[in-house]
Amino acid sequence: MTTTMMNCDGLSAGYGRGRACVRDVGFELRPGEIMAVLGPNGAGKTTLLITLAGLLTPLAGTVELDGVRIKPGSARTASKAGIVLVPDDRALFTGLTVTENLRLARRPGGTTIAEVIDYFPLLGERLDVSAGLLSGGEQQMLAIGRAFMQAPKVLLIDELSMGLAPVIVESLLPVIRRFVDERQVAAVLVEQHVHMALTVADRALVLRHGEVTTTGAAADLAASPEVLERAYLGHAAGTDSVVY
């Protein structure tokens, strides 16, 4: 029987006066599995990720890693347990070089700098360059490589494509797939480019107005665009659209 890596049960979260913008979210993640979290802007995707990472105290529900409950609202506990977040702003030390950024992130059991370069060969040519001088794509490679250095059990990636051309995103997503497969970690991927996300994910969860509207195998959802449209937009589609 496959071991559950992360179990999220009945998770609700929000900001100020107990107002929930994510309600009753539940899922299980297994080693070697990627779950794409999809949904329109304002659906609660980032709120879900930062709650899983311990940066926001949940209003209800639990998060477990390897069967051990993670202390609510404790980023330190979540990080020590192996939950590693790549935020949408990348949070690099822009005045430090690529090498220095990677060295600061290193934990026992994490990748080496040489292994990061194997995943992202372009970084090998930029090791002595300040992170602030990198292109957007190179900065994202560095942010992800830094997460690899932290020996994640569960990798949380928020808006991988933020500010990047689709061709760059297409080159990054297979690296995530490769890392998850080789290291047998689990990953939660928040992404606006639905088709790209479903190409590398095993499962997907769609949030709308903070609630789960649909879950399923990524391949099944990719083959049923009408199901995704309904999950995103409900019966009254309005002016939004699903980005394929």
Score class of each variant (00 low, 15 high):
residue 3 T to I: 15
residue 11 L to G: 05
residue 19 R to H: 13
residue 21 C to N: 14
residue 25 V to D: 11
residue 30 R to A: 14
residue 32 G to N: 10
residue 34 I to N: 11
residue 36 A to M: 11
residue 39 G to Y: 02
residue 43 A to Q: 03
residue 49 L to E: 00
residue 55 L to H: 13
residue 58 P to S: 12
residue 59 L to K: 00
residue 60 A to N: 06
residue 60 A to S: 14
residue 72 P to L: 03
residue 73 G to W: 05
residue 76 R to E: 12
residue 79 S to R: 14
residue 84 V to M: 00
residue 85 L to H: 12
residue 87 P to I: 01
residue 88 D to C: 01
residue 96 L to C: 10
residue 104 L to G: 00
residue 106 R to C: 08
residue 108 P to N: 08
residue 112 T to A: 08
residue 115 E to Q: 15
residue 115 E to L: 02
residue 115 E to H: 03
residue 119 Y to H: 14
residue 130 S to E: 14
residue 134 L to S: 04
residue 138 E to P: 10
residue 143 A to S: 13
residue 147 A to R: 11
residue 150 Q to S: 15
residue 154 V to C: 06
residue 155 L to T: 11
residue 158 D to W: 11
residue 159 E to Y: 10
residue 162 M to T: 02
residue 165 A to W: 08
residue 171 S to Y: 00
residue 174 P to Q: 14
residue 176 I to W: 01
residue 177 R to Y: 01
residue 177 R to I: 02
residue 179 F to C: 02
residue 180 V to E: 01
residue 185 V to L: 09
residue 186 A to D: 05
residue 192 Q to D: 02
residue 193 H to M: 13
residue 194 V to M: 04
residue 195 H to F: 01
residue 202 D to M: 02
residue 202 D to C: 04
residue 203 R to T: 14
residue 207 L to T: 03
residue 208 R to Y: 04
residue 211 E to V: 13
residue 212 V to D: 07
residue 213 T to M: 00
residue 217 A to S: 15
residue 222 A to V: 04
residue 227 V to D: 07
residue 230 R to A: 10
residue 231 A to R: 01
residue 236 A to Q: 15
residue 238 G to I: 10
residue 239 T to C: 09
residue 242 V to S: 04
residue 243 V to T: 06
